[in-house]
Structure formats: C-alpha cells, structure tokens
Design a binder for these strands. Sequence first.
RNA 1: GGGCGCUUAGCUCAGCGGUAGAGCGUCUCCUUUACACGGAGAGGGUCGUAGGUUCGAUCCCUACAGCGCCCACCA
Length: 968
Amino acid sequence: MDKSFDPKEIESKWYARWEDAGCFKPTGEGEPYSILLPPPNVTGTLHMGHAFQQTVMDALIRHARMSGKNTLWQGGTDHAGIATQKIVENQLAAEGKTRHDLGREKFVERVWQWKEESGNGIYKQMRRLGASVDWSRERFTMDEGLSVAVRKVFVEWYRAGLIYRGNRLVNWDPVLTTAVSDLEVNNVERDGHLWSIRYDVVDPQAGAPDHVVIATTRPETMLGDVAVAVHPLDERYASLVGKKVTLPLANREIPVIADDYVEREFGTGCVKITPAHDFNDYAIGQRHGLDSVNILTLDAKINDNAPKQYRGMDRYEARKRILADLEGEGRLVETKPHKLQVPVSQRSDAVIEPMLTDQWFVDLTSDKGRAAITQPALDAVRNGDIKFVPENWTTTYTQWLDNIQDWCISRQLWWGHRIPAWYDEAGNIFVGEDEADARAHAGTQPVGALRRDEDVLDTWFSSALWPFSTLGWPSNEPVKNERGEIVANWQTDKVFLPSSVLVTGFDIIFFWVARMVMTTLYFTRQVPFRQVYINAIVRDAEGQKMSKSKGNTLDPLDLIDGITLPALVEKSTRSLLIPQVREKVEKRVRRDYPGGIAAIGTDALRFTFAALASYSRTINFDLKRAEGYKAFCNKLWNAARFVLMNIEPLSSQERGWGEGSVSTEDHHETEPSSGVSRHLLPEGEGEAKTEAERWILTKLHATLAEVEQHFTTCRFDHLAQALYEFVWNEYCDWFLELSKPALNGDDAEAAASTRHTLLAVLEAALRALHPIVPFITEEIWQQVAPQLGLKGSSILERAYPRTDEFAVDEAASAEIEWFKAVLTGVRKIRSEMNIAPGKVIPLLLADGDAEDCRRAGKFSAQIEFLARCEAPRWLASDESEPAAAAAVVGSLRVLIPLAGLIDLDAERTRLAKEIAHIESEISKCEGKLGNANFVDHAPTAVVEQERARLADWSGQLDALRMQMERLS
RNA sequence: GGGCGCUUAGCUCAGCGGUAGAGCGUCUCCUUUACACGGAGAGGGUCGUAGGUUCGAUCCCUACAGCGCCCACCA
C-alpha cells in the first residue's frame, strides 16, 4: 500500500465492477427495502443538494443491502416539462426560430433528441458519487410504461368525477403563455404605487356623494372593472350602494355593491372590482353575479374589449398611458409609494397575470374530492402510516392539505403528457386512454370530427405516480425498455411498495410528496413510503444560499477531483452575462479559493455530508471540514497499512476481483465471531485474548449498537461521529499502540491473537463504514479479507457488522481505562514539564492498592513502551521517596523523579492548579450532598453517583496534597 | 396575518433535567520505525435576555429580543 491514500486511483476502479457484477440489483431474498430516487430533471446537473441527498440515500441503501434485505434503489429522470421545453426553445432562438416555426410534432421530436443526447449526464455524476442505484431499472417520466400509467390515472379520475374541466381564473405566465399552479408562483415584495382615482356617480342625489375614490396598485385593470365595492356597514357610502358610477376612460356604467371583503380602513374604503384579473375580485364577482370583462391577451397586452386607444399595448405601457390620461382628466387624486406582493413565475420570472382560461383540474376541495383524495392523504400522516423525520414537517404537510385548492393540471406547452381528451364540434368532451376508448365510453355520439386537447399535463402529475408507475403499474405484463430489457414487473415488484423511506427536500413536500401520497393511496390503497426524511438545504460555509450570481456555488465533482483557480474562475463566471456580477463573482472566488480546490475524493465528501446531517434545517458546507474528513480517510488507510505490515504474508491467497468465483459463503450469515477464519490462531483462542483485544471488541460492540440506532433515526451526524471516534480515538490511538508491544513481545500466542483481532476489528470497521465511504473501504477490504480467509469478492457481499459478533467484556474495559489514566497522567507531566518526548524517564509507583499492583504488573511492558520510560518500579517500603512529579490515578501515585528533569517550582504550581480544580469540584459535590432537599428528592442513583464522585475526588485530593507536602 | 425553525468555545455545529462536547482554527512541544492528511498536551463557554416550574435548568414553561424559512386574497 502507498503511504497515503489517493482517492482518484481507488475510486476509478470499483464502481464499474460493482455495477457490472449486478451488485445493485435486488436479490429477491429477504425483507424488501426500497428507496425512490427523486427523479432529477433531465436538464439537471449534480449540485451540492443532490450530492448530499444521494449520500444519505446511498448510505441507507448500502446498509440495508448489507443487512440482508431485498434492496431496490429505484432511479430515473423527470421530463421536467417547462424547464426542458425552455432549453430547446432557447436553442431555437439562437437559430432565430420559435417552436411555432417547427410545429408541434417536429418540436417535440427535437426535444426527445436533445433528451437522448444530454439527458442522462447526471447519471455519470451520480456514479462518481458512488450512488448504488439499480440502473437496469432506470425509468423516465415520459417513457412508454409511465405514459400508460398517466393516461390510466387521468381517465380513472375523470370517470370518477375527480378531474374536471372548467373556465377559471388561473395563474397565467404571459411569457411562457401557460397556466401554472399556485405552487409555481412566488410572491415577491416590490416597490410600487397606490393610485387613487375618482369615479363619478351617475345622477348623484343631493346630500349624497357625487363621486367615489378608489385605490389601486394596478390602474390598467380598471378597463375591466365591473363594479365598485364598499363595506356593507360603511355609512359614508351606504347611500351609494345600488347606484352606478361611470368608469372613466371606458365610459361604462358600473354598479356600486356592498361586500364585507372590503376593509373600511384601507385607502378610501372603496375597491374597484375586476373579476377577470384578480382572484379576490373574481370571488366577489361570483358572489354578486357580475360579468367578467377580460381586457388582456394571453401575452398580457390590452385586447379589444378595451377602448381603442389602448388596444395592443403591453400591460405596463398601458398603465403609464392610463395614468397620464386620468391625470389629464383630473381624476388621479393621489399617487403614493406602496410596497406590494407581486406574483412572479418561478420558471420565467415573469409577473403572473390572473387569467380566465379553460383548464383541467383535480378536485381536491369538494366533498367528493376531499373524501376520495385529500382526506386519505391527511389521514395517512395523522395516523402515523407515514412519518416525517424530523417530525415537525408533519405540521407543514397537514396545514397545506387543510387549505388546499384544486390542482390545475393542464399546461399550454408541447413537451409533456398530452391530455387524453377530445372535443367534438359542439364542444362535448370525450376522455379515454385513446380516441376509440373515449368514444366508447361517451354517453353521446360526437358531433362531427374529434379534435384532441392541445394541452399537456403538469410535470408533477407524472412524478406523482412515481412510487408505483416505476414498478410496472398498471400493466400485468413485464414492462420493457426500448432495448427490450425488462425494467419492471408489477406482479413481482409490488413488494417494493411502500418504499421504506423517501429522502427529499422540504421545497417539494407540496409539489411531490403530498401528491404521491394522494395518487398512491387512491390507486394502490397503500402509502407510497413509510417514512419521509426531509434533508437539510446545503448552504455555503457562511450560511448563505448557494447561487451562481453570488459565486458561492460548489460543484461536488470539483471537490472530489479538485480544480485549479483559473479553471474555477472560468467556470464560475462562464454563464454570467452582467459584467458587474462577473467581476463580483470572480473576486469572491479568488478570495475564497486562492489556491483553487484540492481534491478530497468522493469518500471524504460523503463522510462530510454524513457528519453534517443532523436534524437541522440547513447545513453549512465548509471545505475545511471536508479536508478534516479527508484526513480521516488517510488515517484509516494508514491504520490498514500498519495492520497489513504486521501480518506475515500468507501463501496462495485468493485476492481481488475476478480471480475466483463470487462466493457467497460469508454472505449474511449469523454465525458468531464474524465468520472469520481462525487459521491464524490456535484452537480456543478466545481465552487467550489479551485485555486490550477484549477491550477494543467491547468498544466495537458499543459503537455498532450506536450506529444501528442512528441508522433507524437517520442521525448520520451521530453515526459518522461514532465511527470516526471508534476508528481514530480508540482503534488507532490506543489499540494499535497497545498492540505494538504485543506484536513485538515474546508471547507468540498473544502476538497471534493480537494480529487476528487487529484484522478482525479493522474488517468490521470497514464494513461498518462502507455505507458512508464505499470506495476506500472496498479498496482496503480487498487486502484485508484474504488475510482473514474471507472468500467473497467484494465488501458488498459481507453482512453489515452486528453487535452480537463481538463480545462485551466490562472487566477488560476497566483494566484498559486504568492503563489509559496512567499513561495520560505521565504524558501530561511530560508535556507540561517540557520533557522531550524521546527522552526515556524513570517511573516509580507508590501507594495504590492490590488492584493497582496487579494491573501495573500486567501492563508493565505497555507502559514502558508507550510512556517511553524505564520499567516501572514500585517504591520499596523502606526506600526514601525522591522528589518527583506525580500523576494520581485513584490512590496510586505515578512518580517521575525530578532529578535533572523537572523544575520543582513548576511542579508545585502544577499541583496547586490541580488541587484547586479538585477542591472546587469537591465543594460542588458537598454543596449538593449537604442540601437535604437534594438528598431527599433526587433519585437514589443520582445521590449515590454524587457520593461516589465525592469519594473519588477526595482520594485524589489526598494523594495530591501528600505529594505537595513531600515537595515542600 | 398564520405556521415552523434557530440563538451553546474564535468559526461551523452536536447535546440535554443531575460532572458543558466535537470538527476546524489558536498556542506549546515533537520528523518516535502506520499516518506531519501525523503524535503528545494546553487554552477557550456565567449555553440570546428576563421571569417561572424543580432538590437541581443550557435542557421544561412563559414573555421578550435578534436571525431565518414556509404559507396567506388587504385593493
């Protein structure tokens, strides 16, 4: 093995071997365990959020797989309607064309072509991450099988009366010229104005007002006004209700109505009502039986319902003109600045225009829709069939469903699942899986020819079916891909429903999670998943959201492979068009990464994600931290190197992949002592184990218990930390060091036993770590396994380590803890007294009890080796004690004679400090124990513990004081 | 307006009714034969503020302050 580990070299070889050997496919045996990959957009590239999320999923999947479960990680991509269509439209724009120049069929063809060429780039990146997806079952939300599922769901819901078509006010994106759902609209606060406009009353009566002043932030919509509303109890305007006012500019007469939606205190208490262009006004219009006057075209220009002079003008241009005209007529009473919420399309950044259009909806709000779809989705979470982790997301989910609106599922796009509906010439609707089916199920004969609906479905409609459509539903036959390979078979694959855990971001709880629950419950009567783990959002080291325009994004692959500063600068600024932004970003990149980014490798990146994955809502990705975990990988590597260096090479070992047949001999067996060959050891070696071996096995047992727990609660931070501490602070810091005297000592049996334990514990640690750091563990395992006589060809075939493989020995642990205390005491003195680490010092033992005596004898060689001292010697009873520095362990004093080594004053100061510390601890203890309330009320165990502590401290204090006296 | 988080060591974060922890950074010593991507040690916190519950509060409760996110129809 090389002196330090090189991620690049080891990562390049393993993934393809695992994949080629079919390691990621379900075994068909054991309890099913499955995870759905949230299908990335075909347009997507891997970002830090993906990398984090996929690390979590891969860790869970690998753990389940090694635990003997029948494991499926279902992968695939989403057609991402708008996003993908836009990319291809942009390409066309570069050629000076629009999609209309091509026509629908040619355009869609071109999108498919683009999808084929660049669609699966993210898969390559996922492979670099080590994501063990079963690629042979890869699906696409628009592949043939999934299209069948989409049509079936649409048709069934339509026939059940749960999907309807209606002319409704919807959120309209005038740039993309399509409807979008509520969720695809962001409300952004912007500076605007509140304009007050005077409307004159028709035939005013004496003593009553002759005009009203309305306030608006959107004066251009007044051309579509159909009423003015006041509050029913507003005395100022009571006499006007039922009268008419003249709508300026349009010169239409419109009524004054009363509606308690109006806030009397806001503005003048008069509101213009424009049902065709405002959601509230639409509702008022419905209540009062008002007509709607639509004054906008689909690309947000003034239409022919408006006075001539405004027709064809863009909405903002019209606003200016209207304000000017009002001003000219003296009707603009006031203009004042006003902050308002502007609805903005997530996809195009265009300001959304409420627009009256014909659209398709899923009924989620009528009694029927609630009962059939919404309520079951709520109940599944409320009754615990689906659990959110962390739990508090439950509230978010249920509150949204409690206030849900019908889901607008039609989009005026070309790329997507075309709605399976047809119209005859009389406008009758025919819905079916195809035209024939639609006709067959219709109650009436179509009038004239049928014409298919032009619209496509919301992209989330097909992803809502992901949990079961990917498994082959609704076909009873195996589903094949275009190469004729079977990708799913509902009859056999339904065991993977419900999936075990869904790992996803909170931002798509509504878009995706809730809708999967709805569809899956409705069509399969099962929940789609048992658990929803909401992963944190990845931010930069300072907690800032990562964004290209800030220049603080990180490409996971750049962390893995490293990147030079010039390349990073070029990459970060490539897509930025505004010079000022470019400059700012470049500056930042140069500041944050003056030397570029050093390669840390996939394993270190994954370990970092795991270590950061607490239940916190955001995680701040700090490169420094990742470098720390790279060091951990190197530590592990070198520990393995040490172990292998100390094993005598074995003859005729089968090594590596491909040399032997794949053996499953050791796969998931439950035999004790890790199924490890004992050919290195004599029979009955169990009794021959040294104290240190029994101690490290006890530690391993405890660590594995903890790890298992953290897997079930998704606490990857704790999991990573437990393993980190075990490997570094227990195995490397102590066990390897303790093993050195044993390996080099005279006791051949102890040496052999130690070698075996070094290997066995390392091998188990590799297995335990593998779900998080798959590459390095496989690489090392390949070298370690043969030494243990293990036959499998990959660590993937080994069972995840279980606690019961490793015996607990509390007595041995106590022995080693004693040893560690002695050693730590000596080291502390050495360090604080500035005794050169290499200097061999004499060591005397004094006082202590029989246990100390026994232990000192037993650990003599280890103490000598690790403390770099002469063989420890007990102070004879008649021997006069030399002036010495002392470490106190219980009642034992470990003495380092001063002669030539230690400054007497310094030692006194050191002792005084320790004494002061212990005295303060003692006074705390005494304070508690002297408090009758504490002794009476606190649990006995707590009181006892406090007493024990007091005794312990007191003993040490005595020893320290005695030592102090001797030095005086 | 409703909801949900967060506030602990210089930084990033765990923790949790009963001795305040980690990583990184800082300081000291050390190229000791697995590892300087290392070893040995040190320093550093009245756990946002104010009350309350309790024998005991960083942890539970209540208010307050600051920060953040998500939903929502005040023109």
